[in-house]
Every structure is written in C-alpha cells, then in structure tokens.
C-alpha cells in the first residue's frame, strides 16, 4: 500500500522546504502551498510542534534568507525589527539595550542560549502563546506589526495581533515581515519581568511589562502595563497604567497598580501554576517591573 493515504489520520510522509529570497517570492510560495504551508523563522516552536504531532507542515517556507526579514534598524524614528532576526542578535545590540531595555530583557529570556540563536520576536508573536515573553513588551511599546500577503501589506497594532491561544490575525498566506516600534520619548523607559519556577528553561507562569514616562520632577506622565500568561492573550491593563499616571511611583501607587493587575488577570489552573497564584504574582511583578522602569526613566531625565 502506498504511504500517502488521504482520508486516514496518518501523517504524510514528508514535507517540502523552500527558502525564498524576497517577500514577493514568499508570498507566492505560501499562496501555492495551501493550508499546511507554514512559515519557518527560528523554528523553535514550529519544529517542536511538528515533532510532537501538534502541527503537520507539508511545506516549510523558510523566511531567513529574505534580507527585509533579517534586518534590525534603529533610527531616530524608532526600531524596525525584521521578523526573522534571532534573539541573540537583538540582545547583543547595544542600542537595543539602551533604548528598549525591557523588550531586550524579554528577548533575552526566551529559552536557552541555544534557543536564542534561532528564536525570533516575530515567531514569538506568531506562535500565539499567551505566555510569549516578548508580547507584553511589544504591547507597552505600542508596536506595529507589518504583514505581507497576496493582497499586499497591512499594518496591525501588536495589541490586536494575537486573538487567542495559538491564534492570530494572520490570514492564510500572510506572514509577518517586521515589527515597528516608535523611538522612546524623553524620560521614557520600559521593563519586563517574568516568573518561572526555575531560573531558566521554563515557560512564563506570569510576565509583566511596564513602560512609563517621567517628567523632570519624577512624576509619571504616561504609563502602559501589560501582562502575559494570565489570559487567552497578553493583555494591556489600563487600570494599572492609570494607577501609575500622575503619581511619583510611590509605594501606594505601585500597590494600586498591583491590585489592578490582580483584578485584570483572568488566568487558568494548569501545569505551570494555579489561577490564584498567577493573579498574586501578576500583582507582584507589575510592581517590580514598574519600579525597574521608573529607575531607568529617572536616569534618562
């Protein structure tokens, strides 16, 4: 009997692989590949899912040979981060550390050294995990996702990109090209903390990103708070942000922000933590992240 047997739930023998050299080539390849064509960036999620049977790619479209997707550009306008730039290249970049310390920390927290040699922010976003480390940071930095597809390019805010666990706004044939983040304003800084039971090699039980802007007197002019792993997607917590805005980030304001995070969190019980535990830690990390971000912002005024 031949191996390919449509209609039975047997895994097909093998996939195909192509590595387009331009966005246009990739669009074409995905158009022809059907629903089981999958884009391959770092592969650190996709290849694990393929191995464990969660996904069954028939066509891998490797996006690492497209110059646009491998570019990391920082200018006065902000950051253009190609979707396939590996994590290690990002956190080794001194400008990234200086301008977006929270996002850079989040990137540095993805997996082991080996994983960081491959994993990408684009993949972290497109995998759609509620626990993705970089997504809370992208939310507080008001990142814009630039998407390519057969209909052309479109731009979606990072806060709208993920729609549920494993689900994104990407339509069949579309893929993420780059992420754009505005340049930080004067007195602004960000921070990201996550909790894991070990010191490394875990998926976030909770992640908390804070971005805030302090005026010259140390008063918080603007703030944004986002949580990961406490809801079907990473969430912006308006209540926590408003608790910080207008304050000098005193303990009382931090506690109010923490309480808002506790209330906003809608976590589940799973193997990585209980719902109540996650709420508690969301509050703690929100406060700690805000403290870190404030410390950095003070240094920029």
């Amino acid at each position: 009997m031949p191996l390919e047997n449509e209609g039975e739930d047997w895994r097909m023998l093998d996939a195909q692989y192509i590595s387009p050299r331009s966005v246009a080539e990739a669009v074409e390849a995905l158009k022809g590949g059907g629903k089981d064509a999958m884009v391959l960036a770092g592969g650190t999620d996709l290849l694990v899912q393929a191995r464990t049977g969660l996904r069954d790619p028939r066509l891998y479209v490797d996006l690492k040979r497209i110059p646009d997707l491998m570019a990391l550009d920082i200018s006065s306008k902000g950051l253009h981060l190609g979707a396939s730039v590996p994590a290690a290249q990002i956190f080794e970049n001194e400008d990234m550390k200086a301008l977006y310390p929270g996002l850079t920390e989040a990137v540095d927290l993805i997996g082991s050294t080996q994983i960081q040699g491959r994993a990408t922010v684009g993949g972290n976003l497109c995998n759609g995990s509620p626990a993705a480390d970089t997504v809370p940071s992208l939310l507080v930095l008001e990142a814009i996702c630039v998407i390519a597809g057969s209909e052309g390019e479109r731009r979606v805010p990072a806060s709208e990109f993920t729609t549920g666990p494993g689900e994104t706004v990407l339509r069949p044939g579309e893929f993420l090209v780059r992420i754009e983040i505005p340049a930080p304003s004067k007195g602004a800084a960000d921070a990201y903390l996550r909790f894991i039971p070990r010191t490394e090699m875990d998926i976030a039980v909770v992640g908390a990103a804070v971005s805030l802007t302090l005026d010259s007197s140390g008063c918080c002019e603007a703030a944004s708070v986002a949580l990961g792993a406490v809801a079907p997607t990473a969430i912006l917590v308006e209540g926590a942000a408003s608790a910080l805005i207008g304050s000098t980030l005193d303990e009382a304001a931090l506690e109010r922000a923490g309480s808002a995070a506790y209330e906003a969190a809608q976590p589940i019980d799973d193997k990585r933590g209980t719902a109540e535990y996650r709420r508690r830690v969301a509050s703690v990390l929100t406060q700690r992240s805000a403290r870190m971000a404030a410390e950095r912002a003070r240094g920029r005024n």
Binding site: Y17, L40, L47, R51, Y60, D62, Q114, G117, R118
Partner: peptide, 10 residues
C-alpha cells in the same frame, strides 16, 4: 543552536 531544531535543508 540545538541541531534538533534546525531542518537539514536550512
């Protein structure tokens, strides 16, 4: 890198 997470054609 982990060679288990790299496809050979890459």
């Amino acid at each position: 890198v982990c060679s288990c997470l790299v496809l050979s054609p890459e």
